[in-house]
Structure formats: C-alpha cells, structure tokens
Design a protein around this nucleic acid. Structure first.
Lengths: 242, 242
DNA sequence: GCAAAAGTGTTCTTTGTACACCCATGA
DNA sequence: TCATGGGTGTACAAAGAACACTTTTGC
C-alpha cells in the first residue's frame, strides 16, 4: 500500500566529469542533439530508472559516456528549484567524476556528441548546469585538499611535476616546486618505479605509481599537499562565465 | 508537454536537528505515533510538496517542529537505495540543522511527540536514519573545522569556555583551555560584552557576542579552532549504536 | 655550452603544543 | 581558606615558506 501523498516527481542525475590533460582541468560536455535546448551545451545526465539506486544510475551515466566504470564518483548536491527544468518539475542529484583522460572510450564520446572542454573556456550550459559545475569545483577543491583523490585524474604512472601541475590546475594557483615535492613524498603515497618520463624534452623526471594500500588507508583520513588554506571556498573560480 | 520518461518517485526530506545543552550534542527525534514503524524513533521528515523547492521544504519541516525559522540549515546528502523505505520507493534529501536550544518552541515539540536526546544515547532509528545521523555528524565535523558555524548552536551571549565545551562535544575530544582561548580570540570573531556569566558557580567568565560582520565575512572562508586534524572523517563516532 | 626543467638542502618564520602561574568566586 | 574554574604568559617543537645550488637532457 503506497503512501497517500501524491506529489511524485522525476529524478534526474547530472554528472560533472573532470579530466586533466597535463595542463588544465577539462569538463566532458555534450552538445545536445535533442529537445529541449537543441544545440546547446549541457552536462551528461539522465533519469533515475525503476529498480536502480542513485549510485547505480550515476555510474550508468558516466559509463555510457566514457566507457569507464571504475572512476571516482561522488554525489555532492541535489538541486530542486521549482523551475530549474522548464519542461517539467524535476529534481537533479548531481555527482562529480574524476576520470583518467587516457582511458576514455573515444567512440562512446563521439557517439554522444561530447567533447572535452577546458574549464577556462566553458560555454554557457543549459538549465542550472553552470551552477552545478561551480559547486562541483568547490567540492573538488575542498575534497582534494583533505584527501588524496587527485591521482584519479592521472595515468597509472606519473611524475611529481605532473602531479603538481594537476594541483595547480585544481586550485588555479602556482606552487613551489621544492616544497611540493617534499610534501608529497613525505606522505608515503608514492612509489618510485625507477623509470623516467621519456616524453619530457629536458631532464626526464622519475615516474611514480600510487602506493595502493597506503592510498586506500589514507582515503578515509585527511592530508594536504597544499600550502596554507587554498581550499577556501570563496576563491574566484577559473570559469569564463557562470 | 512533460517528459516521456515515466518513473516518478516520492521525494522525502529528513532533517537532523542538532542542539547543544551546555554539555553535549543532542538530536531532536520524534517517537512516531503513526504507521509505519509506529512507536519507533525517527528523524523529523516529510514529503516534498508541489510548488515548493527543496530548501523551502526543509525549512518548513524544521519550522514545524521547533518554531524556529532562522536556523543554520545545510543539505548534505541524498539517500536513494531502492528499498530504503519499505512502503514505497522514496528518495530522501537530508539536511542538518543547528538550532539554539533555548529558542525552541516547547509546544511544537511536544505536539510532535519529539524529544532532545543526547547523541551518546541515540536509540535505533527507523529506515536508514541511523546512517543519516552518522553522515550528518561527519559533515558537521568537517564543516565546523573549516567554518565558524559552531556559534549557531549557542545563545547570543556565551563565554569562551562554553564555546570550548561545544567544540569538545562536536569532536568528542578534550582541548587545551589556554590554547583554545588564544586561538578563538585571534580570529577576531568575538566581541567582549563586559558582562559576566552569572550562572557560573565559581569565577564568572566574560560573555562574548559574535562580531557579526566578521562572522559573515568568514563564513565563506576557512578557519580552524582545532589543533591538528581532528576533522579526520574516520574518527569514531560518539554514537551508542549504528 | 646553454636553456629548461628536475632533484636536493638549508634557513627563517610561523604555528602548534605543553606547560606554569595567578585571579575570582562561593561554600 | 580551599576547591573550582577562568584568564594570561612563556618556552620548546613542528610545520610552512623562501630561497640557492646542482643535475640531466636536447639543441
């Protein structure tokens, strides 16, 4: 016997998919080829199906677009303004995902009319998606300052300077090379492979991998690569608009 | 013209209402006098109505129970497991509220069959409400470590030792009196009133009020009263069960 | 050899932490 | 005058930040 309360609404899920290309943070966005808002840019989303939890639906959506199913995926906020979707009352549970851009399924992405777009060049998005991106970035900054999740955006092997570039992108700032290196190594999260980064044109840095057990252990704890409190959540966003 | 997608679900809101009684953190819980789960303990909740945003619905729910409408209220997670509500598929958007226990509307509370219960003595709650409390506390800890929101739980005038007791309750720890005092005063968030706390049996401490403009300014920023990283989110919870 | 980027070390400053001591109050 | 709790100071330890120097590589 169901509840007598009658107001049932559509539940959407929208995913802010972050990728890192070695220089800056990118978003995976789709150019809609369907109504409403045909031709405009949007986050990847979908509706909650029967017999599917929110987590499962979010995974499905990210998997459909990227072909990846082992991403970092975190729910961060639910948006429920009355007219946020002009078609019909819909509430949207928003997730952000961190994906390694090298592992993506290029065909799936092309099929959905999607592109990686630099955060600095983000176009205007439909509905309240601009705000979703802003909130996702805010959350990513707080989270990455306290937990070692940045690695999710990098390939399996990476150099410390590459890791630094990533953090500089997330916080839109410059960090001191020497202090950063010392701080990262002191966490015991990295294991040197002895290999060198052959893509470099100058001195080839050492490639590291994650110390997996230590990584899992520290996922629950807190840490910080960052000097001072860069994680303040009123810092200006590296967005071209909002 | 609505979307063709057909799966529309009930949207509930559940509120974890925190109060501080001078000694420990308390939750405002209701003993249900209706089905399902008649007679069992539950968070205060309700369904989303037509023409009402999520924020508005959460405010309504807290207001109904406490008579207060100027609380700190923050959405923190949406729960959507398939069978989380045995009656019917329902997703629940959870909020936590910080209220000043002295301002409550005692009649409204009695009317709803509600009671303040110490976090340490929390009974088993219905559905997934235990987990909601756990997650709310985790969020409160992180938030209070970075933002000066603790004051929301105190009366307008309070002493520094009272504030310390509050933080000790939130983090279930002991803090050094002298270091705490120095740290708090250095934030410039407090203004001495010159008055003394006449309720004390021994030396009467000075009463302070919030430096309101500074408080608003620092709401967006970050700060920390706490030594070290007490905000680690894997610390044991001061809950009697879960 | 030179420019560019990686790797390592050292100093100074700031912050955190652990204390000791004095003061105000009521019983 | 004693027990309890508030208020202030100081000294040592740890962490953060600034900065100099060396090494590797491609041109």
């Amino acid at each position: 016997m169901p509840y007598t309360h009658t107001h049932r609404v559509l539940v959407a899920l929208d995913c802010i998919i972050f990728g890192f290309d070695g220089e800056g943070l990118n978003l995976l966005l789709i150019k809609r080829h369907f109504e409403p808002e045909y031709g405009n840019w949007s986050l990847m989303g979908g509706f909650l199906n029967e017999g599917e939890s929110l987590e499962e639906a979010a995974h499905r959506i990210v998997y459909d677009l990227t072909g990846l199913d082992n991403n970092y995926l975190e729910q961060f906020q639910t948006f429920g303004a009355i007219n946020r979707d002009p078609v019909e009352r819909t509430i949207s549970v928003a997730y952000y995902a961190l994906v390694n851009i090298e592992d993506q399924d290029v065909n799936a992405i092309r099929l959905h009319n999607a592109s990686w777009i630099s955060l600095h060049k983000k176009p205007k998005l439909i509905f309240d998606h601009d705000r979703m991106v802003q909130e996702a970035l805010k959350r990513l900054r707080t989270k990455a300052a306290l937990n070692p999740i940045g690695f999710e955006l990098l390939p399996g092997k990476f150099t410390i300077p590459q890791l630094q570039k990533l953090y500089e992108a997330i916080y839109d700032t410059k960090l001191d090379r020497r202090n950063f290196s010392r701080k990262v190594l002191s966490t015991n999260l990295l294991v040197g492979t002895g290999e060198k980064d052959m893509s470099s044109q100058t001195k080839k840095g050492q490639l590291y991998t994650l110390n997996a057990p230590e990584y899992v252990r520290q996922q629950q704890g807190n840490f910080g690569f960052l000097p001072e409190l860069i994680m303040a959540d009123d810092r200006t966003m590296p967005l071209s608009n909002t």
